[in-house]
């Protein structure tokens, strides 16, 4: 394999980019180094934004052939591609042509198509979680009973009717939130921080290479 294709090169780049951010934070290296560090963050945001079409290409790779070959459900793919193209064209930042984020068609579409769709997509989980509460939330063991009781008390704390009937639900709910929940989350946070530190060191030293596969391969 040619040297420039070797995986060590991106690993070195990763380590250098990480050190550009880490070293000036711990050592006083002067204003010019700090300015370079800050400019570098902005610059790499431009590099990152360059990937904007990657997701779109991946989606189009799936839907365009489906439309061309009239495969099952090609009609929906047409709607997807049409919607994508319309949103993109009217949202292009060419204000000289009246296009851009404040274009009236773009505003209409995000206000009346994207907004209801996006907010409803996530709200539908309410039904599934309620159904799951009915089917799976069982007091099968002491641990499960603690979970169930704590969950139920929180439901009564969050429902205004619960605290209206007995203000004690609010006090108990606050205690559950501030003591067992806070302690559990803190332990997870500390564990997660330790894991992040280890992962960082592994990535910088080349032991962690999974991210270089680009995902899904």
């Amino acid at each position: 394999m040619a040297w420039y294709k070797r995986v060590e090169i991106p690993i070195i780049i990763t380590a250098i980019c990480a050190l550009i951010q880490i070293l000036p934070y711990y050592f006083t290296l002067g204003a010019s180094v700090e300015d370079f560090q800050a400019t570098f963050v902005n610059w790499q945001m431009v590099v990152g934004t360059g990937a904007t079409f990657v997701g779109a290409i991946a989606i189009l790779q799936l839907h365009i052939p489906r439309i061309m070959k009239r495969r099952p459900q090609w009609e929906y793919s047409t709607a997807l591609v049409a919607m994508f193209v319309i949103m993109l064209i009217f949202g292009l930042p060419i204000r000289e042509l009246g296009l851009g984020l404040d274009n009236s068609v773009f505003e209409f579409l995000y206000g009346n198509v994207l907004t209801p769709l996006s907010s409803t997509m996530y709200s539908i989980i309410a039904f599934f979680i309620a159904s799951a509460a009915y089917r799976a939330f069982r007091a099968r063991s002491l641990e499960a009973t603690i979970l169930l009781v704590a969950g139920s008390l929180l439901l009564l704390k969050n429902a205004p009717i619960g605290t209206a009937v007995w203000p004690g639900f609010g006090t108990i709910g606050d205690w559950l939130f501030n003591v067992p929940n806070m302690s559990t989350q803190r332990a997870i946070l500390i564990g997660g921080a330790l894991g992040a530190i280890v992962l960082g060191v592994r990535a910088m030293t080349g032991y962690e290479r999974g991210y270089l596969r680009g995902g899904g391969e």
Binding site: A130, R138, L148, L155, N158, I161, G162
Partner: peptide, 24 residues
Amino acid sequence: AADAISTSHILVLAFVIIGNIGYF
């Protein structure tokens, strides 16, 4: 929305109780 929060939460609680009654 506050009243709807109450009714929906009470319903979920009822689901949990009914499911557990059946189970036990």
